[in-house]
Design a protein around this nucleic acid. Structure first.
Length: 287
DNA sequence: CTAAGATGTCGAT
DNA sequence: TCGACCTCTTAGG
């Protein structure tokens, strides 16, 4: 489930399990073997997430100012699995395996889009091209607003553009636009400042919940299965959602069938009744 | 059992 | 706009 909350959760997990310790690093069958050799035996001194990017920092070199970073992006399929005790014989492809020196814990990374050894300046470059992340304390949401408010691109596409803001994926996009009653096909410049501020604030809350819980849950208390007396969702995502992958099913709020379509190559879901197009402002009105 | 599709991104066209 | 990437889950036979 790699939207931003997953990576922040992983950063915390790597820190908790391996932080500060000298660790064993290997790449059992992958193209990362050479890099793993360079990191093996060194301490994991920092872990960090920005959007959907994860950084694992390794110190312990002669020059304390130079940290080597492993830059990880899970893409659509990537997974990290933590386990207790010694790591088992690899089954299938494992790109990166980290174990404690005493074999009490291990973590296996599989199927990432990116797993690369980078320098600190290279890491800074990655940060530079990512927009503010609702889960990071150092984010400046104004930077996202500057782009959104000047753009003719749909708000649906803008929310997924990691240069505009980072960490939002297809589920959070669909859900936050539903919760704020915004038609996903509106251009960014049609949003009011108040709408954007509400979207940003809602993302910070929803994504923080995602980090805490490990799944995406976006329905308000009054719309939970218990509150509505409806069956709980039965799929692997775990959480309850309003519109994501609910095409044709009745909206939980107004019972209108949820709309679905493909937008810029990704599935898009929305309620046509709860997310009406914003009334056209006087400046844009053409009689 | 097999097939299709998915939470993402890049590069070719 | 489309295929590639390459893992896992789910739907279907």
């Amino acid at each position: 489930m790699p939207e931003g909350h997953t990576l922040h959760r992983l950063a915390a997990a790597y820190r908790q399990v391996f932080g500060g310790e000298s660790v064993r690093v290997s790449s059992p069958q992958g193209p990362f073997a050479q890099a793993a050799l360079r990191l093996d035996g060194r301490p994991l001194t920092g872990t960090e997430a920005h959007g959907k990017h994860l950084f694992l920092g390794f110190g312990g070199t002669a020059d304390p100012a130079s940290t080597d970073w492993v830059h990880i992006h899970l893409g659509l399929y990537g997974k990290v699995r933590f386990g207790e005790g010694p790591a088992p014989e690899p089954v299938g492809q494992i790109r990166l395996r980290i174990s404690t020196a005493d074999d009490t814990a291990h973590a296996d990374l599989r199927g990432p889009t990116t797993c690369a050894l980078i320098s600190d300046p290279e890491k800074q470059e990655v940060h530079r091209r990512l927009g503010p992340d609702p889960l990071r304390d150092d984010s400046v949401p104004e930077q996202a607003w500057q782009r959104v408010s000047r753009s003719g691109t749909t708000v649906a596409a803008l929310l997924m553009d990691q240069k505009v803001l980072s960490g939002v994926g297809n589920i959070y996009r669909a859900e936050v636009l539903f919760r704020q009653g915004i038609d996903p096909r509106l251009p960014g410049r049609a949003l009011t400042r108040e709408q954007w501020d509400a979207v940003w604030k809602d993302l910070t809350l929803l994504m923080a919940d995602g980090v805490r819980d490990g799944w995406i849950d976006t329905v308000r208390p009054e719309h939970t299965p218990q509150a509505m007396g409806r069956p709980a969702r039965e799929d692997a995502h775990g959480g309850e959602v309003y519109v994501y992958r609910r095409a044709g099913l009745p909206c939980l709020v107004c019972a209108t069938p949820v709309s679905a379509g493909t937008h810029a190559g990704r599935n898009l879901f929305w309620c046509p009744a709860c997310q009406p197009a914003t009334p056209i402002g006087s400046l844009q009105y053409r009689p």
